[in-house]
């Protein structure tokens, strides 16, 4: 018996599970529900799902177990992890384990829809997106750029500069999965960015919120002055001229170890 399943929600908290289901049904998505990892696996074995939305804390096996299992057995199914509270470890770990993204609780409608839309679009256009070559930058050679770049999954990147600062931005695939960008919210100078926590909010039509997690911790020096004039720079050259903010990293040695040198994370 195979029926269509867009999203499988794995959550033991009834109220969260129901809330997620309601939100997803509004999008006309086919939603399946599971209380724990065993139930989830049973569903995945019978149905092909495009996306698994799983809590980390589950009775029995954890969301991390389900993440690993899904990546191994159903590689074309994306996983988005719901975290009770996002610590640096959780955030970075989800990306290292191959999650598409994570969404911290409590989420609102726009935030959940933002990440689910992106994940579904990625799964629909996966081969093309993975083959996406680094676009040539306006003022730098891509190879040289790669040498100084570190990635948080296929989500965001940090580039180290010889003057000790670092620029942060979103990965190439990121802008391709968004609706029309209406607004970009960036931290102000003097504020702190923290690895695995909110770097930027991209607001799109319909109160959809796309959140960008920071690959590095540091003190914000400035936002990209060019991007405030033309948001579409993110679209055109996300890894070059479309960088978001520049920071002074706080704990570079430790944090770089947690990031990937490869462009698309673990594939």
């Amino acid at each position: 018996m195979t029926h269509r399943c867009d999203v499988l929600v794995v959550e033991d908290e009834l109220v969260v599970r129901e809330a997620a289901r309601k939100i997803l049904l509004e999008e006309n998505l086919a939603v399946a529900m599971a209380n724990d990892v065993d139930e989830a696996v049973a569903i995945l074995e019978g149905t092909s799902c495009r996306l698994v939305l799983t809590d980390l804390m589950l009775p029995g096996a954890s969301g991390f177990d389900l993440l690993g299992l899904t990546r191994k057995r159903w590689p074309s199914t994306e996983v988005v992890v719901i975290t009770g509270y996002a610590t640096v470890d959780h955030a970075v770990m989800t990306f290292r384990e191959g999650a598409f993204d994570f969404v911290p609780k409590p989420f609102d409608i726009g935030e959940l829809l933002g990440v689910v839309r992106r994940a579904l679009r990625f799964s629909a256009d996966r081969p093309a997106l993975l083959a996406l070559a680094p676009s040539t930058s306006e003022d730098e050679v891509a190879d040289e750029r790669n040498d100084s770049c570190y990635f948080l999954g296929r989500h965001s990147w940090a580039r180290l500069h010889t003057d000790g600062s670092a620029t942060l931005g979103v990965a190439e695939t990121f802008p391709r999965l968004l609706d029309k960008i209406e607004q970009l919210e960036l931290p102000a100078p003097e504020e702190h960015s923290r690895q695995g926590q909110l770097l930027a909010r991209i607001l799109a039509q319909g109160e959809i919120v796309y959140r960008v997690w920071s690959p590095l911790s540091g003190t914000v020096l400035a936002a990209n002055p060019r991007i405030s004039h033309s948001i579409d720079l993110i679209d055109r050259d996300p890894c070059g001229a479309g960088w978001l903010i520049r920071i002074i990293p706080h704990d570079l040695d430790r944090e770089l170890e947690l990031l990937d040198r490869r462009r698309f994370g673990l594939e």
């Binding site: 109220v15 409590p106 989420f107």
Partner: peptide, 12 residues
């Protein structure tokens, strides 16, 4: 966080 998710979603 769990009940808050419910409150936030349903009230929205």
């Amino acid at each position: 966080n769990n009940p808050l998710t419910g409150v936030l979603t349903y009230s929205s």
